[in-house]
Write a protein that binds this DNA or RNA. Sequence first.
DNA 1: GAAGATTGATCGTTCAATCTTT
DNA 2: AAAGATTGAACGATCAATCTTC
Lengths: 144, 144
Amino acid sequence: VTKIKKVDAWATLFKTFTRLHQKMEDSMKARDLPTLEIYDVLWTLEQATGHKLRFSDLGEKVYISRCHVTRISERLEKSGHIKRVPCEIDRRGVWAQLTSSGLALRKKMWGVYGQLIEEQFSSHLSEEEHRLLIKVLGQVKIEY
Amino acid sequence: VTKIKKVDAWATLFKTFTRLHQKMEDSMKARDLPTLEIYDVLWTLEQATGHKLRFSDLGEKVYISRCHVTRISERLEKSGHIKRVPCEIDRRGVWAQLTSSGLALRKKMWGVYGQLIEEQFSSHLSEEEHRLLIKVLGQVKIEY
DNA sequence: GAAGATTGATCGTTCAATCTTT
DNA sequence: AAAGATTGAACGATCAATCTTC
């Protein structure tokens, strides 16, 4: 058993993820589809009750800042994939409401994204290895 | 043994890495240090023979585009961390030459970065788990 | 005063076009 | 013509300041 450097595990994680992610973004763009970040936003809205979330909640779920949520929502509204709806309960807030066009886009994106995950990632791993990854990476809790 | 969804492994990888990375970038910025991408550039130059690489080679090693290399090098030269040296053998090319100030910055960054890797990542994993991650993630070969 | 969201300004990244050398 | 690098323009992200509502 040879002694390993712990930092090599981090380096491997860094490089593997970064290149995989880059490759997927490239493939999405090549098909004129939005980024995976946008996919995350659409998917998060779809899962929410009523297909809507307040900007602040949306931002927390997908880990992006307030003004970034505003800017992304701006574009998504322009393209008709969400609608901004004033929040009646708390008039400071704004709902991001997924439209049927937004739902369709999410599904269309999944057609490509899901295939990329299979081809570029899952196909290289056994079921046991999938399980292991979930377990090991799940142990990593970020401390603030 | 419960059946798992393969996509959950990808989702875990995605979220864990993204948040870890974000947290580290925040910590670097909080100490007025450059991004991890810049760290990668400096470290790659330091490892190269003569502490220098042509822009095109540098770009390939750190997986960034030509014009991105130009822009980053522009800033690194302004701050004195690299020098642009015309390539004599092939006059189309330009060397990025690490300066002593650049080397010092790389080391200073490592003081923080190395600690972050330990605190936020390695400390949550056993040695065996480190080894496993390297093996499993190493199997993932990106296809173009 | 604090929380939610927006805006103008700034900064960094990316695209397409360009220039030089091979 | 192709490879290496650069540049202006467009685009996207981020910061600080602002506005409204709680």
